[in-house]
Structure formats: structure tokens, C-alpha cells
Design a binder for these strands. Structure first.
Lengths: 224, 224
DNA sequence: CCCTATTTGTTGCAAAAACAACAAAACTTA
DNA sequence: TAAGTTTTGTTGTTTTTGCAACAAATAGGG
């Protein structure tokens, strides 16, 4: 099982021995699978009986509304979970889909095993449980951040709000974002072409610069 | 301490005796205060060293952006927490303010005491810890719901998305929402006057009806 | 390296939302 | 109940966005 290497790289399992991980995999009824870009890992509205862990690559949490519009709710990276909230809040269907954003490896675990205390007394299970809390909290804060972007009036303010947050996270005025233009439009819930126009304008104005997925905030907007 | 009565009403403390609650209050360094409508319970950007519990009434999580626009992120009711995520994710400032939405009673606890295991072995502390996970998960799902509303193109779709969710939660086509029109506009991040126009149109069309904070979805939009 | 698929930029037009300003209605409270 | 405050509705103007269609640029695969 060469996937063990990828698992061990995750901060989540730091300090766990191979045996620990092997035992946990068994304990949680783990399964590991790999996906190509664009492949659906788990469908919207399907039964929520597993919890997914991105082991390698990236995946997007997506929601399709009644008109067929796709919204990218969140971008998940290695170490991030999908489905934990449903498990803990006792919801039995996922309200969103998980879609591989690039070549990825995803582990999944039995929902019930994850949320209930381990009978086997796995060495890492306690650590894991503690981390869960932290991860869900971080997710919650990330969602709040996103709401802040979406709450901006106008595409210009939305995109600047997003880019400033990304810049702050990166701790630099140059930074990469996980979205191409089409995906960024989906993430910000605006028209792709309109976003393109606004980005072009901001570039011409000299406020920002960008190339591919790399951005640069040249003029920092002042906080209130 | 007559506030004890209010605390005991919360699902969170069901099955806890007065002594249990008294011990927990001591253990968590609890403080209780009451607030009028519009009063700021805790300011945006202030030090996040306490966790707040709405004991009675309602409060809104609000965010003011760099242009002075107020966004209502979330409406909290009795039993809901504020600041838990910051505690668990180890953030030291609140990114939002908590504002009393009506006459309310709010308890606050020492952040550190909440997130670390209790040395006194309070009877309810374990239960509390378990509920925390559930609450944060539920919050996360609620935020995802809101993102879905905000992701809709156009005010009409936003407000219908919101009202349908509220209707589903209430389990009826008649239901009350916690916002007046101004607050609803802030929650949906749109112009109040534009929202007013759209609501009027929907009422004239016969899609919905409303009076004060009571709404009625007359024609149900079909899911995809 | 060429062919194809995807991504990105551009434009014009129609529709919608922001904004501002004001009037009517409802709610407070003295 | 009268005065003042807040909420809600209305309207006209300006700006922005959505939408559709197309062209250019880029990436990916054989």
C-alpha cells in the first residue's frame, strides 16, 4: 500500500507510526481511491455515510442550484475533510458534491466510526478527535470569510475582498489562488465574462496584476 | 441568581441539576449580562478571549467592511454560541461583532476553560464538549446554506432561496423570519430599496405573501 | 509539432441592481 | 394622543451585471 506515504505526509498524522495508521485505517474502514480532474468524488444529495479526506491534490465543494448554476462553495486541499459536518450534525445526505479539482487521492472513512469514541484505543484516535474540532472550526471561519466576499456589492469589491484575504493568508502581495478565471467566477458567484472585464479594468488601473493563477496586489486598499 | 431559570431552559443543559450548572458556571468563569436591541455585545476585531452563549433573545453576527457596509452574517437564537470557532481554531481576535437583535440575555465563558478538558470533572462538561462539536457542525452547515442564497444571481432568486430554506426549516409554508426588511437586505447583501421592489413584485405575482416578519410561499418552485 | 479542447478576453445589448431622495405607514413613548 | 423615530414602499437616474456570441490565446494529447 504505497498510499501510506501520502497519508503520512499530512499534518493530521504527524507522529503516527505506520502501525498506528494501519490500525486506524482498519478501525475506520478506510478506503482510498484516486480521481482525475473533474471527476465527481461524491454526488450532491447522496447518502452521507462516509467522511472524505483529501490525501493528495485538491477538490472543490460544489453546489448545483435549481437552475443548473454551479457554485464552488469551497476549495479543499490535502488534509481537508468533506462530510464531517454532516456526520456530527447528524444529517443523512450531503447537500453538496465533492469534485476533484486536479489529479487527487482521497481517503474515505466510515462516518459512524469517526464520530464515536474508538473501542480499540488507537494511539492517534484522540489526537484525531481533537483535530476534528479545530478543522471544523477553521472551516466555519473560512465560510465566514467567503460570506464576506459575497456580501460585497459589485464584482470589483467582491474580487478585491477575495484577493486581499488570499494575500493576507499568503502573507505576501504576490500569491497563487487555486482557481482559474472560470472557477473564480463560480466561487464569487458572478458572470465569468463580467469578471474578466473587471479584472482587466483593475489591471489597467494598476490596482492589481495577474498572470494565470498568480496575482499581485499593487495598491493596498486601506481598512476602515 | 434568577437567570438560572433561563439557562436551564436551554437544550444544552437538559438533564443538568442546579448544582451542576452552578459548578459549571464557576468552572467556566461565567458572566451573565442583558442587552437591549441594537446594543453591541462584543465588538468586531476585539480580543477573542471569551465564548458567548445566547441565553435568551436573539443576536446577530455582523461584519462591517471597509466601506462601512454592514452585513448580517448570521442570526443567533437562544442556545447558540459566538466565538467557539475562534477558540478552537486558536484565533485571537473576532472578525465580526455580536449585536443584540432584541432584548437578550447573554452568558460568556472563559475561552480557555471551554476548550480544555475540565479538571473538576463536572457532570455536564463531557456532554457539553460533545454538543460543541454538533453545534459547530450545524453552524458550518448553516453558513453553507447562506452561501447558497448569496450565490444566486439576482435579488429575486436570492430571496426565494432564503425563504424556501426558512420554509423547509419551519416545515410549513407559513413561517416567521428573524429579520425586518432592512435586516433581510443586510443578510442577503442587497440594496434595501431594491429588495423592497422585488418583494412587492413577488407579492403582486402571487408567488409569495408577507406581513411584517411573517411570510407565506404560495407557489413552490420545483427543485431541479 | 499539429490538432483539438479549453480557457480567456472582448463587445454590444438588455436587464437588473445600486443609489438617492422622498412619502407613507407603523411603531414608540412621553 | 400627539410628536418624533423607524421602517417600508416608491420612483427616477446611473451604473453595473448578465447574457450571448465570437475571437484570441493557451494547454494538452497524440
Amino acid at each position: 500500500m504505497e498510499n501510506l506515504k501520502d497519508l503520512k505526509k499530512l499534518a493530521l498524522f504527524k507522529g503516527c507510526s505506520d502501525q498506528d495508521i494501519a490500525r486506524m485505517k482498519n478501525c475506520f474502514k478506510a478506503e482510498i481511491a484516486s480521481f482525475e480532474k473533474g471527476e465527481v468524488i461524491i454526488n450532491q444529495s447522496s447518502k452521507a455515510n462516509r467522511v472524505y479526506l483529501i490525501v493528495k491534490g485538491e477538490a472543490n465543494v460544489e453546489h448545483e442550484d435549481m437552475f443548473g448554476n454551479i457554485a464552488i462553495i469551497l476549495n479543499l486541499k490535502a488534509g481537508d475533510f468533506f462530510g464531517l459536518e454532516e456526520a456530527y450534525a447528524d444529517k443523512n445526505t450531503y447537500k453538496d458534491a465533492l469534485v476533484s479539482a486536479e489529479k487527487s487521492i482521497v481517503a474515505s472513512f466510515d462516518r459512524q466510526k469517526i464520530i464515536s469514541p474508538c473501542s480499540n484505543n488507537c494511539l492517534c484516535h484522540q489526537i484525531l478527535a481533537k483535530d476534528m474540532m479545530k478543522m471544523i472550526s477553521a472551516r466555519s471561519l473560512a465560510l465566514t470569510d467567503k460570506i464576506k466576499h459575497l456580501s460585497q456589492r459589485g464584482i470589483k469589491d467582491k474580487v478585491l475582498s477575495y484577493l486581499e484575504t488570499q494575500s493576507r493568508i499568503a502573507g505576501a502581495s504576490y500569491f497563487d489562488i487555486p482557481f482559474n478565471k472560470t472557477e473564480l467566477a463560480n466561487y464569487l458567484a458572478v458572470e465569468r465574462s463580467a469578471l474578466s472585464t473587471v479584472l482587466g479594468k483593475l489591471k489597467k488601473e494598476g490596482t492589481i496584476d495577474f498572470d494565470k493563477k498568480r496575482y499581485h496586489i499593487k495598491i493596498k486598499k486601506e481598512e476602515e
